[in-house]
Design a protein around this nucleic acid. Structure first.
Length: 901
DNA sequence: TGTGGTTT
DNA sequence: AAACCACA
């Protein structure tokens, strides 16, 4: 026997037929996998196992020919032969029948041919298919582990593949398993019988005896012809007595490949042309998010988008007419920088047919540049179309276009699709760049910028505005051309994956709100900052001098490398922790060292001031817009994996608040004369979300009765009454509540609280003892997440987590923390986004939303109407969604952001 | 690129 | 946990 195990033919081999014993597979998965159900409660475990096999087969084996055999149900010729055959079997349980039907639907959606034949079992059909395939010279892989089918194995040309265990049975493996070659399996099974099918066989003859007999005689017929040569008397007698049953069993187990069945092998050629929409719909309904990613229409033919340059008002007018005729308009604004508030327009690219773009250069400047459309002509000709809400607009990052155009005095309405936002909803951590989406989903290539503007030796890289317009058009016009084509692919995907509402009712309207916020900006009082900056510079100088005196030489306190040498080599302080490159000098380490030496404390003070000065005090004045005098942060809604909004230039979401110095920076964010700064915070939104999602009775009650949640947690885990909760107990409880939200493990909690791991473990344990509902919710979430390889929020936003099945423990543990955190953080983000959309229109005339920080919205409000605005903002935010617990908003106002808190 | 630090 | 940013 060969020592090398039989292997499957190579993936994609053109002469291989894959056959699936579907009924057998579903039946096996039904018993092998523990029960699961879909979000709607439908049983799914057998379906899940079957889909896992199917998708693995289709994705990895890339079958050239593929077919599925199923039992027809009802009477078979075997039942006619022997009334006992499979007669003892109870009717299949209803949850198996449901899943069998589902599996059939899924196979149909894969567009895999199914053969069913009255009177025959799936095994018989497989035998026929194998026989026909052999005639044609095809190799065959049967996806099954049914021992009856092993008689069909033919060396390495016909093999059985147990996809669940990934084991392949060729002749060698069959011999190993049964002790006989495949051609004797039939007679072996006839002798041994099969209790699960009620095939009688010969009593007292087992696998070993049967194999020995067949080794000696070759066939069942030969055994009976030479029955007297059977040595063991007991075996001989058993054979004689049960000759009828043995022959009957042989008929029952024989798979006859010569049956006349209508089966055309040519129809089994598999092109991979699955009904992807139907598959996605089924997988979504069943909660099989894990398989969604693999469902992809066959890669379309690669092609370039067409492009045309528009240089005159007339040509532009003709295009606008075309777009109106086509009923939609895709656009991409090409600007001189990523910041739409300061960028100048280089050109506008448009499309109204997928794959066909035009480019309107506006600000190209190079020697010999042709006359370009003027901004005024653009406004007059394209402006009305952009402003027309009845003309649907499509783009990739439409907010950028909107802000850049608004800045030039255009109005903008009627956005119906954004490929960036759509792609983000489908996979927030995927690559959402338009060229990537376009090539993958539509085959349209967006050329890289370098392709139209090759780098020239010794010359600086050019901007788009320095590229010859017809070259630029090949690049620029491809964007809207691709966006339109991509939108046609993504819209049905969003629909079948139940993300369409999230786009239409949340993200798209939110993009408009964020655009308004970017245009509005926020006012910073530069005077307040310069004074602060001078003061900080002086303090830093003093600290640096002190540090020099301590160590006796020059040193740069901002350099972790220098600091490392001084602290651990010169001063011989004990290294606490290592980083990848050396010994850590982070705040925790310095705090620990501060007791032993004066230098670490000095460094900490320096770091605090230098950080605030560099990041805010010095940076903010540079970001003041020269024309508006305000700071126009860019808001991103398609960056954070959890669904949160993020902000850049500056990041308004990490402006200091805890230290006095930090608060003085917030004091520089002010409302203009005649207005006040109004700030509204959701109180404990994440824990409220957790209460709602988990329905934990203690948590829900605490919020319904308006208790201090950290005190309540302290009462629970320390088992004391409210009056006995000390400051320290409350502080620890607060950290634990945080830990729960972030999926913090023991070690992270221990570090935070500065306690031993074992103690942290006890806290966590006590927490889950008292908040049983939370514990159960976490377990449920994790089980769901493992199955679907994804987690989702209250509004159905999702995050894919393939790493939950990673073989790397670190990655898996990381994914598990994310699985705990994301439903909570993401749902809080959903609610805030909802509130923002709800507050899209000013609550009172003259009010405008200027910033958001995860659980906070801030507005500029005319001074006279603050009270009215406060009432309206609170009402809107608190009623944004009816949770099981009340939503509470803390609201305040004042001259600056600091005072509004 | 790595380290460190700010927010929620 | 997950953003963004400064600095060496």
């Amino acid at each position: 026997m060969s020592t090398r195990p039989t292997a499957l033919p190579p993936a994609g081999a053109p002469d291989v037929l894959y056959l699936i014993d579907l009924s057998g597979y579903v039946f096996r998965a039904y018993h092998a996998i523990s029960p699961l159900s879909s979000p709607s409660g439908e049983p799914t475990h057998a379906t899940y196992g079957t889909v896992a096999m199917l998708s693995k087969l289709v994705e990895e084996r890339k079958p050239a020919y593929l077919g599925v055999a199923m039992d027809a149900g009802g009477k078979t010729f075997r039942g006619e032969l022997d009334a006992r055959y499979k007669a003892h079997r109870p009717p299949p349980p209803p949850d198996l029948t449901v899943q069998m039907a589902r599996c059939k639907e899924i196979v149909e959606a894969y567009r895999i041919p199914i053969f069913i034949e009255q009177g025959l079992e799936a095994d018989d059909l497989l035998a026929v298919a194998v026989a026909r395939a052999k005639e044609k010279g095809l190799r065959v892989v049967i996806a099954s582990s049914d021992k009856d089918l092993m008689q069909l194995v033919d060396d390495e040309r016909v093999v059985l593949w147990d996809a669940m265990r990934d084991k392949v049975y060729g002749a060698a493996e069959v011999k190993e398993k049964f002790g006989v070659p495949p051609e004797q399996v039939r007679d072996l099974l006839a002798l041994v019988g099969d209790s699960s099918d009620n095939v009688p066989g010969v009593p007292s003859i087992g696998l070993k005896t049967a194999a020995e007999l067949l080794g000696q005689f070759g066939t069942l017929e030969a055994i009976y012809a030479r029955i007297d040569e059977v040595k063991k008397p007991r075996t001989r007698e058993a054979l004689k007595t049960n000759q009828a049953d043995a022959l009957l069993s042989q008929k029952l187990v024989t798979l006859d490949g010569s049956a006349s069945v209508d089966l055309d092998l040519e129809k089994l050629q598999y092109g991979g042309g699955a009904d992807v929409d139907r598959l996605r719909e089924l997988f979504t309904a069943l909660g099989f998010t894990r398989f969604l990613k693999a469902v992809r229409a066959p890669t379309p033919e690669a092609r370039e988008a067409t492009s045309r340059v528009i240089l005159s008002r007339e040509e532009l007018a003709a295009f606008v007419a075309e777009a109106r005729e086509a009923g939609r308009l895709a656009l991409e604004v090409h600007a001189s920088s990523r910041d739409p508030m300061t960028a100048s327009l280089v050109g506008v690219a448009l499309a109204c047919q997928p794959g066909q773009g035009v480019y309107v250069p506006l600000g190209h400047r190079y020697l010999g540049v042709p006359a370009q459309v003027s901004l005024n002509d653009l406004k007059e000709v394209l402006g009305p179309a952009l402003a027309d809400p009845a003309l649907p607009k499509v783009g990739h990052d439409v907010k950028f276009c909107e802000v850049a155009l608004q800045r030039q005095g255009f109005s903008f309405a009627g956005v119906t699709f954004d490929t960036l936002l759509a792609s983000y909803l489908l996979d927030p951590e995927g690559n959402n760049a338009l060229p990537v989406l376009s090539e993958r989903d539509t085959g349209i290539k967006v050329p890289p910028f370098e392709a139209v503007a090759p780098k020239r030796k010794g010359q600086p890289t050019r901007g788009l505005d320095e590229v010859e317009v017809s070259d630029a058009a090949k690049y620029a016009a491809a964007f809207p051309a691709a966006a339109l084509a991509v939108s046609d692919k993504l819209r049905p995907r969003l629909r079948s994956e139940r993300l369409e509402k999230l786009l239409d009712d949340l993200e798209l309207p939110l993009a408009g709100v964020l655009a308004q916020m970017e245009v509005a900006g926020v006012l910073v009082d530069p005077g307040a900052l310069t004074g602060l900056g001078e003061q900080m510079a002086k303090e830093l100088a003093v600290i640096e001098t002190r540090a020099r005196e301590i160590v006796g030489h020059e040193l740069n306190l901002a350099s972790p490398k220098q600091l490392e040498t001084v602290l651990f080599d010169e001063l011989k302080l004990k290294s606490q922790r290592k980083t990848k490159t050396g010994r850590s000098t982070d705040a925790d380490v310095l705090e620990a060292l501060a007791e032993e030496h004066p230098l670490p404390g000095v460094v900490l003070e320096h770091r605090l001031i230098a950080k605030l000065k560099g990041t805010y005090v010095d940076a903010l004045p540079k970001l003041v817009h020269p024309e508006t005098g305000r700071i126009h942060t860019r808001w991103s809604q398609a960056v954070a994996a959890t669904g949160r909004i993020s902000s850049q230039d500056p990041n308004l979401q990490n402006i200091p608040i805890r230290t006095a110095l930090g608060r003085s920076i917030r004091r520089a964010f002010v409302a203009p004369p005649g207005s006040v700064f109004l700030s509204a915070d959701y109180s404990q939104i994440e824990l409220r979300v957790l209460a709602h999602l988990s329905r934990d009775p203690v948590l829900v009650e605490a919020f319904r009765t308006g208790q201090d949640i950290h005190t309540r947690t302290a009462m629970e885990i320390f088992d004391v009454d409210a009056a006995s909760v000390t400051e320290e107990m409350r502080r620890q409880s607060k950290t634990i509540n945080f830990g729960v939200i972030y999926g913090m493990g023991e070690s992270a909690l221990a570090k935070r609280l500065g306690i031993p791991r074992a103690e942290a473990a006890r806290f966590i344990d006590a927490y889950f003892q008292r908040y049983r509902g939370v514990h159960e919710f976490m377990e449920r979430t994790m089980a769901e997440a493992r199955r679907s390889e994804s987690v989702h929020t209250l509004l159905g936003r999702r995050r894919l987590l393939p790493d939950l099945r990673s073989s790397d423990r670190m990655r898996r543990a990381y994914a598990e923390r994310i699985a705990q955190n994301t439903p909570i953080q993401g749902t809080a983000a959903d609610l805030l986004k909802l509130a923002m959309v709800k507050l899209a229109r000013p609550v009172v005339p003259g009010a405008r939303m200027v910033l958001t920080v995860h659980d906070e919205l801030a507005f500029e409000v005319p001074s006279g109407v603050v009270e009215e605005a406060s009432v309206k903002v609170r009402e809107a935010m608190e009623s944004v969604y009816a949770l099981d617990v009340p939503l509470v908003v803390d609201i305040g106002h004042g001259a600056s952001w600091a005072e509004a808190h």
